[in-house]
Amino acid sequence: MDRQELAAFLRSRRERISPTEVGLPAGTRRRTPGLRREEAAQLAFISTEYYTRLEQARAPRPSREVLTGLSRALRLNPAERDHLHHLAGAPPGPPPGPPREVRQSLLDLLRRLPGSAAFVTSAALEVLAWNDLAAALMEDFSAVPPRERNLARRAFLGPHPEGRTLYGVSDRAEFARHAARRLRATAARYPDDPRMAALITELRSGSEEFARLWDEKEVSAEPTLRKTFQHPQVGPVTVNCDALDITDHDQQLVIYTADPGSPSEEALRLLSVIGTQEMDVHH
């Protein structure tokens, strides 16, 4: 435990937070920026005396529960939370589950890709956010419950909108292998996530194909660079596939684009017009 660095870090994080950010009155008699020590302690559910001793480098090592409270009270991002744990001599354990919040810059980016079908998936293959063209090409994700927006569940268990197996993709078998391998790696990273465990149990019991692929114990998968969707309204749409890792959130931004001047580009342009209905990006 590095008491001096821990004290300095806590003080710097406390001083950057304005009272109004955490619902406290700003007041007019504050001599220093940010929260007072007693306010930070209250938000962290610890005593003011103990928090003061932490900032004075005189306190014993804080427990993981105290560190969790401090992280929440001081609004630490994941990197800062990990740093706090290391300073306290208590390296952070694995996060409880795959992050499912999509940051605003990615939501804005989806809207700025009107000529591409783009969406964000979690490490558990949940579709977390999408643009209008992705909804028109695949399905209207806003019309189904969040639980059903999981691509692995769609691939192995259905239901299949308009009778299309996994949106009529040409690489359905390859995607099935990819999904099983990715979920196995994800389950290892988040061993304490009940949602991940429930998903794996559901897929293994409901799909012989998934159970077989799961039992192969493979964790690496070749990326799909090109695929064709059989769309009920515009026919075949062949797209290039790019999956960009969002490493700090363990997510992927998937972008489908058609070759310039191709019939598939025309089909995507037509889909952007007929689409589903006008809708915002959801997450």
Rank of each mutant, 00 (worst) to 15 (best):
N77C: 14
P78R: 05
E80C: 09
R81V: 15
D82T: 13
H83A: 13
H85Y: 13
H85F: 14
H86C: 12
H86I: 08
L87Y: 01
A88E: 13
A88F: 15
G89I: 02
A90H: 13
P91E: 05
P92T: 10
P92L: 10
G93T: 14
G93R: 15
G93W: 15
P94H: 15
P95R: 15
P96Y: 03
G97H: 09
G97T: 05
P99I: 08
P99H: 14
R100A: 06
R100K: 10
R100F: 01
R100C: 05
R100G: 08
E101H: 10
E101Y: 02
E101R: 11
E101T: 04
V102F: 04
V102T: 01
Q104S: 00
Q104K: 02
S105L: 05
L107M: 01
L107K: 02
D108I: 00
D108F: 07
L109P: 00
L110N: 07
L110S: 10
L110V: 10
R111F: 07
R111K: 15
R112S: 08
R112L: 12
L113V: 04
P114S: 15
G115P: 03
S116E: 09
S116H: 06
A117T: 05
A117D: 01
A118I: 00
F119P: 02
F119K: 09
F119N: 02
V120N: 00
T121F: 08
S122I: 01
A123P: 06
A124K: 06
A124P: 04
A124N: 04
L125E: 10
L125M: 09
E126T: 04
E126Y: 01
V127G: 06
L128F: 10
A129D: 00
W130K: 04
N131S: 11
N131E: 11
N131W: 14
N131G: 13
D132W: 03
L133A: 01
A134R: 00
A134I: 06
A134D: 05
A135L: 02
A135F: 07
A136Q: 13
E139M: 09
E139D: 12
F141I: 03
S142V: 12
A143I: 02
A143M: 15
A143G: 09
V144A: 05
P146H: 00
E148P: 02
E148C: 04
E148I: 01
